[in-house]
Design a protein around this nucleic acid. Structure first.
Lengths: 201, 201
DNA sequence: CAACGCTGAATGAGCGTTCATTCGGTTTCG
DNA sequence: CGAAACCGAATGAACGCTCATTCAGCGTTG
């Protein structure tokens, strides 16, 4: 189940992403994934236990890559913790253009996985959130981020906003061309400084 | 299809909410909804065209109620536009305790509806977002909210945060008792004033 | 030729939907 | 007024189709 032909396993995962993203997990047929991968239906079952297991493996794989990329880009980013948060936000939103299938997959399918793929609590997702949380905590220690805000809440709020935006962008970017930079700047502006008008002083 | 017995139609919708929320739309059987409603399987089809149509009708119905409640509570709320936004946030999050099934339904099923229930673009959802947008726009006209932020983006960010929070709360509140007020205050603090530490002056 | 990866047609369980039948209520008629 | 005829909502067993999964056989390799 594990090895055999690693390249074929990858082809199946790639195909699954494409098919699940376009048709949705429940509407997708295993035979469609097989066809897209250029493989026989039965071959899928030489590499994955079941359709559910394929879904989970796909999560693990893609989240792992996203985590690696995020850590990497954050490490590369010069500047304050706030700059690093901006970079993480930019990376997340860039998925719409970089990998639209992954964007749709994450925004739509991630929701159910926790709830309906039994006993799977999605550790990779938690790990991804931890990246943001660590940045916020570091910012608070450095005095760059207010200590009165709850880091956990900030992370949920930011991720929620990103997720919703990614979904909206995914569903509309066929038409309009998107200015991601403007969106990233706008979001950071909101989260960093709030929407309340400050009296001149 | 429309009437016959309106009370029975309501029973079916209530049952559908319960079953869809606990098992998920795709895992839920029509026969389970029928059983929960105390009706025969075939009766469902006297009131709704199909399982999909039942899902959509459920959306319409529940979103309509939510919109009505939000408009009502906002109208009742004394104070500035920011106070009204706080009230709308509080209402949304209060679903976890008030109507946990509806909370799970909205957070999990709303995601797919746009994408997979064909040609259904969910006008009620748009209407719900408009409530927030109008508040933000009013706030900008009154000089209470910065004019430089994009109202549409603010609304998406707030709704995204609310949605994510509602999901998290739904999945965990079995264990911990939740302090909703603290969460609402925390969120408003973040969105109103941002997370950046302001230098003393 | 043994072992193994792979194939894809066959299987059969699951489930949305249908429809012949039931039955409580209402109207018609003697 | 009582009975017969009718109505149509409700029922739930049965249908038929859709896949996830299996497995007997094929080609390939060492």
């Amino acid at each position: 189940m594990r090895d055999k032909n690693p390249e074929k396993r990858i082809r199946i995962l790639d195909a699954a992403l494409k098919v699940f993203a376009t048709r949705g997990f429940y509407n997708a047929k295993v035979s469609e994934v097989a066809k897209e991968a250029g493989v026989a239906d039965g071959t899928i079952y030489l590499y994955f236990e079941s359709k559910d297991a394929l879904l989970i493996a796909l999560f693990e794989d893609r989240m792992q890559r996203l985590i690696a990329r995020a850590n990497d880009e954050i490490a590369r980013t010069e500047g304050t913790v706030l700059d690093k948060i901006r970079q993480a936000i930019a990376l997340h939103l860039s998925l719409v253009l970089d990998d639209p299938d992954l964007a749709e997959f994450i925004t739509v399918e991630l929701r159910q996985s926790g709830k309906f793929v039994k006993e799977y609590d999605n550790p990779k997702f938690t790990e991804y959130l931890r990246i943001f949380r660590d940045l916020v905590l570091a910012g608070q220690e450095q005095g760059l981020i207010r200590r009165t805000v709850d880091a956990r809440l900030v992370v949920r709020a930011i991720f929620g906003a990103l997720d919703e935006l990614l979904l909206t962008l995914s569903l509309t970017h066929r038409n309009r061309s998107v200015d991601l930079n403007a969106t990233v700047d706008g979001l950071c502006d909101i989260f960093f400084d709030g929407i309340r008008a400050r009296p001149a002083h």
